[in-house]
Structure formats: structure tokens, C-alpha cells
Design a protein around this nucleic acid. Structure first.
Length: 384
DNA sequence: TCTGGGGTCCTAGGACCC
DNA sequence: TCTGGGGTCCTAGGACCC
């Protein structure tokens, strides 16, 4: 087992907002928010300048996807409702999300990193882990080289943390944002990690933070000092032991280069909550559309699915799921619609519906390569 | 002024099999 | 008639992440 690893975490700085600033450089230095649905694209005035939507003009159910550092300074952060954000920063510029541009930029920055350090784990559109263990250069040179390559490929800055494992690298990349480099060794855990709030650990969310707070544990250092048996008593054997481990900066998870997806889903929150009977036609159309999009996604990505599921969110925001495992995997829109319909029958509809979702799990890759017949599994036992 | 959309992983009970 | 474990699959919900 390789015990002297060098793991980097790279995080693009305010990614979506930064991509937008490449297109609209005149917005640099201003509070800018990306998010919402049906937000107007900037309009060109007769004099050639652009007119942008303001946060105060927004009405609807959208949330902040990303905000520039200037907007964050006003208290506007990711996942905040736009109506609330508008209270805090009414004059901030509001731009609609342009996912095609972000995906394109994402591909370019990852390809640029791969030319220097190919051992990459994808963690979504704007961040990656990189295993640098086998590379000869020192960490600071590598970090600078990678940042330069990312900038050359995209015009964007990122922040990098390099440490002995993924857990610490993820925390480190956030310590000197934006455009930062943070290198940490095992000896830095007590001085650099322990003073931080427990919430900074990837995997400790709002619920765990609240529960830890009730035990008088706020910082990672306090978590490290807590007796293992106290943590096990309140969080269970597995989670308790995990909390104890991560508080001491221990993490042996490998950098995983290739991963098959586990599920593919589509969901939609409506402009207004829909009534199960009065809005039946509209709901049915949306439902069928979601099934078709899931089928399209499956076919485009080359998968079939064994388990079809649905999700409903009601007016009171409470969500319910149902799923159904099929006798044989499918990527067919009509078959998915039938299975989803069976799931829907099992949900009592006593409230207006806010969101509808369709999910395909139990994914089976469609093998396109010419594999021998020995790889084809019989669907059912031959005798029963 | 209520809170998006795409995911992963974990838990836990029941069915079913050996 | 009652008593066992162990293992896997299915289903529902929830925490968490980007």
C-alpha cells in the first residue's frame, strides 16, 4: 500500500459566474448571480452596450446556482432562493445558466490538467482530484504548472490543495480561494485543520453539524478530542468511527479514475403547484416528457435500466419516492412510462404537487464492442 | 421570499433462499 | 412444531455533495 501519497484537489473559482464573465467582461468587479429559470438573456442596446436583468426584477422559484465573490460579500450564496437573494442584493446582475458553455469549459480544463497529471477523478463539472504520487516534480511546481495550463485552456483561475489524501486536499483547496495554492503535510493537521469548523469536512452537513453542536463540538479539533465511544453512541458504529478518523485527518480512499454511472434522472419543479385532478392533463404531459428524456439520456449514453423510479414533492415540500424493478432492463420511453405509471399508482395524492421526477437505476451498459458469447448472461435460469 | 436539478451512499425492514 | 443464522434483492427514505 502506497502510504506517502500526494493528492491534489482542484476547484474552479466561482466556476459558472467566471465563465459568464468571459462572455461579459464589462461585469467584472460587480455582484453577479447565475441562476433562475426563464431569466432573460442580456439585450443589446442600440448603442452596442448590453442591458442585463437585475436580481430585483426576478419573480419565481429559482435558486442561486453560483455567485461572484462580490455577490458573496453581500451574503448571496449558492442554493439560496433568488427572491431572498434579491432582498440582500437587489441591484446585482442576474444571468441565466448556460450549461453547454460550462460543460465545454469543464472538458477543456480537465483535458489541460490531464496533459500534466493524467490520474484524475472526476467530481462533477468544476472540480477534480488528482493523484500526483508517481510524478517526479515537487508539489509547488506541479500546482503552478497545472494552474497555468487551466488558465491557458480556459482563461479561468482555480484553487489547488495538495496533501497526503483526498479529505485534506478538499479542505486545503478551499483555504486560499480564489486563485490559491495550499500544500499541507501530516504535521499541519493540528495547526491548519483543527481550528476549522467541523462543517468543513466533506460529508458533515447541516444535520451532523447540528448534532455535533449539541454535544459541544464545533471545531474539527474538538471532534478529534471527543472520545470514540461518545461518537459511536450518538452516530452509530460506522459513522462514529468515520467522524473520529476524519477529524484526525486520516483517509485512505483511492483516486478513482473511471466510474460507471449508477442512475440517470430528470425532474422538474413547476411554476405553480399542480392539482392531481384539476391539472391532470398538464401533469400527465410533463410526466411522459420526463420519461422520454430519461429514455433519450439512457440511449445517448448507452445504458439500459432495470429499476425505474419516480419522485414527487408536494406543496409542503415533503418528498416521496417509489420504484419498480423490471424483469428485463429497458431504455424504451413507453416501457419507462408504464413502469413509472405503476409507481405513481402507489402514491396517495392528497396535496398539490410541486415537483415530478423520473429516475432510471440499476444501469446495465449496452456493450457495443464485439464480445464473445461467453459474456452474454442468460436472463433467467435455464431450468426452474 | 420558501427552498433547482443532477447525482452518490447509507440504513433498515421484509422477502426469499440455503 | 419450533428454532437458527447468513446472504442477496427490493424498496423507501434521508443525508450529503456539486
Amino acid at each position: 500500500m502506497h502510504s506517502n501519497r500526494r493528492i491534489a484537489h482542484l476547484d474552479m473559482d466561482a466556476f459558472f459566474a467566471s465563465v459568464e464573465l468571459l462572455h461579459y467582461p464589462e461585469l467584472r468587479g460587480q455582484p453577479v448571480v447565475v441562476g433562475g429559470r426563464r431569466v432573460d438573456q442580456p439585450r443589446l442596446r442600440p448603442d452596442g452596450s448590453r442591458e442585463f436583468a437585475r436580481l430585483r426584477d426576478y419573480a419565481g422559484r429559482g435558486v442561486v446556482t453560483t455567485s461572484t465573490y462580490e455577490a458573496r460579500a453581500l451574503g448571496v450564496f449558492s442554493a439560496m432562493g433568488l427572491m431572498k437573494a434579491a432582498q440582500l442584493a437587489p441591484e446585482a446582475i442576474l444571468l441565466p445558466a448556460n450549461f453547454d458553455a460550462y460543460r465545454d469549459c469543464s472538458r477543456r480544463f480537465k483535458a489541460a490538467v490531464a496533459t500534466i497529471a493524467p490520474h484524475i477523478e472526476d467530481r462533477g463539472i468544476d472540480e477534480i482530484y488528482i493523484d500526483l504520487s508517481e510524478l517526479p516534480q515537487d508539489s509547488l511546481s506541479l500546482a503552478r504548472q497545472i494552474k497555468q495550463a487551466v488558465f491557458d485552456a480556459t482563461g479561468l483561475s482555480c484553487s489547488i490543495g495538495i496533501t497526503p489524501n483526498k479529505l485534506l486536499a478538499k479542505i486545503a483547496s478551499d483555504l486560499d480561494k480564489p486563485d490559491g495554492i495550499t500544500l499541507l503535510g501530516p504535521d499541519d493537521v493540528a495547526t491548519r485543520i483543527w481550528p476549522l469548523p467541523a462543517r468543513k469536512i466533506n460529508g458533515i452537513g447541516p444535520k451532523a453539524t447540528e448534532k455535533l453542536g449539541q454535544l459541544g463540538i464545533a471545531s474539527i479539533g474538538q471532534l478529534a478530542a471527543a472520545p470514540l465511544e461518545l461518537l459511536v453512541r450518538h452516530f452509530g458504529q460506522r459513522s462514529g468511527a468515520w467522524l473520529h478518523r476524519v477529524a484526525h485527518g486520516r483517509d485512505e480512499r483511492p483516486v478513482v479514475v473511471e466510474q460507471e454511472p449508477k442512475s440517470i434522472s430528470r425532474e422538474s419543479t413547476f411554476e405553480r403547484d399542480l392539482h392531481p385532478r384539476l391539472d391532470r392533463a398538464e401533469l400527465s404531459e410533463i410526466f411522459t416528457g420526463l420519461c422520454r428524456r430519461v429514455a433519450d439520456d439512457l440511449q445517448r449514453k448507452g445504458y439500459t435500466s432495470r429499476t425505474i423510479g419516480i419522485k414527487l414533492r408536494f406543496s409542503d415540500f415533503h418528498a416521496v419516492t417509489r420504484d419498480l424493478t423490471l424483469p428485463a432492463p429497458t431504455a424504451d420511453a413507453a416501457a419507462i412510462r408504464r413502469a413509472a405509471g405503476e409507481c405513481l399508482k402507489r402514491i396517495p395524492l392528497e396535496q398539490r404537487i410541486r415537483l415530478l421526477g423520473v429516475r432510471a437505476g440499476g444501469l446495465v451498459p449496452l456493450k457495443t464492442s464485439g464480445l464473445g458469447s461467453e459474456d452474454i448472461q442468460p436472463e433467467l435460469p435455464l431450468f426452474r
